[in-house]
Computed example of a mutant assay.
Amino acid sequence: MNPLESLYQELILDHSKRPRGVGLAEDGPRAATSHQHNPVCGDDITLRVRVSDDGATVDDVTWEGAGCSISQASASMLAELVDGMPRAEASVLVDHFREALRSRGAVVLDEDEFGDAAALSGVGKYVARVKCAMLAWVAFEDALARA
């Protein structure tokens, strides 16, 4: 394993052991919740998005879930990354994430754009794990559309 792969593995383990944004915040008028389940491996994520009064900014992302370290780390990385981000920028980020994971490793996530979530770039090489990494992002996309 090269040093970069080792660092990425450490980031994934850190986020799965010490997740950020875990614990659903109270529901409210500018919030929406999405529950997603991966029937292949049993991963579950319930994610809540709260947006600003004008709806232009992601104010808060919280979640709870159970599953493999990749699904849990991905939810943690997402919650940390999009907090305070403009809504339109967050939607583009989801599209870029999906594109990278579906590329089977051909597209690498940029650390400047994705922060710790760039560590999930290698997941695209393992088709069975893509759904694990995408679960929280699909929940975020769904909740954001309804918030």
Rank of each mutant, 00 (worst) to 15 (best):
M1P: 03
M1Q: 04
L4I: 13
L4K: 00
S6M: 15
L7Y: 11
L7H: 13
L7T: 06
Y8N: 14
E10G: 09
L13P: 00
D14G: 07
D14A: 12
S16Y: 15
R18G: 08
P19S: 11
R20M: 14
R20I: 15
R20Y: 13
G21C: 12
G21N: 09
G23N: 13
A25P: 01
D27A: 15
G28C: 08
G28D: 07
G28N: 13
R30M: 03
A31E: 06
A32M: 05
Q36S: 12
Q36L: 07
N38M: 02
P39V: 03
P39F: 05
P39L: 09
P39C: 05
V40K: 03
V40A: 07
V40L: 10
C41P: 00
C41K: 02
C41Q: 06
C41Y: 02
G42R: 11
G42F: 12
D44Y: 00
I45P: 14
I45T: 09
L47N: 09
R48E: 06
R48G: 06
R48A: 10
V49H: 01
V49W: 03
S52Q: 07
D53V: 04
D54W: 03
T57C: 06
V61K: 08
V61T: 09
V61M: 08
V61R: 10
G65N: 08
G65Q: 05
C68G: 10
S71D: 04
A73C: 01
A73S: 11
A73F: 03
M77Y: 12
M77L: 14
L78M: 15
L78P: 09
A79S: 15
L81I: 01
L81T: 03
V82D: 04
V82A: 05
D83M: 00
G84E: 05
R87G: 06
R87H: 02
A88L: 08
A88E: 15
A88V: 11
E89S: 13
E89N: 04
A90M: 04
A90K: 09
V92T: 12
V94R: 13
V94P: 12
D95S: 10
R98V: 15
R98N: 14
E99W: 02
E99Y: 04
A100F: 08
L101K: 00
L101Q: 01
L101F: 07
L101T: 05
R102H: 00
G105Y: 08
A106R: 12
A106W: 00
A106M: 08
V107C: 01
E111A: 06
E111G: 04
E111H: 02
D112E: 15
A117D: 02
A119G: 12
L120M: 05
G124P: 04
K125W: 07
Y126H: 10
V127A: 11
R129F: 10
V130C: 10
K131R: 05
M134S: 12
L135K: 11
L135C: 14
A136D: 12
F140Q: 04
F140N: 05
F140I: 01
E141G: 14
E141K: 13
D142T: 14
D142H: 11
L144H: 00
L144V: 02
A145H: 06
R146I: 02
A147F: 03
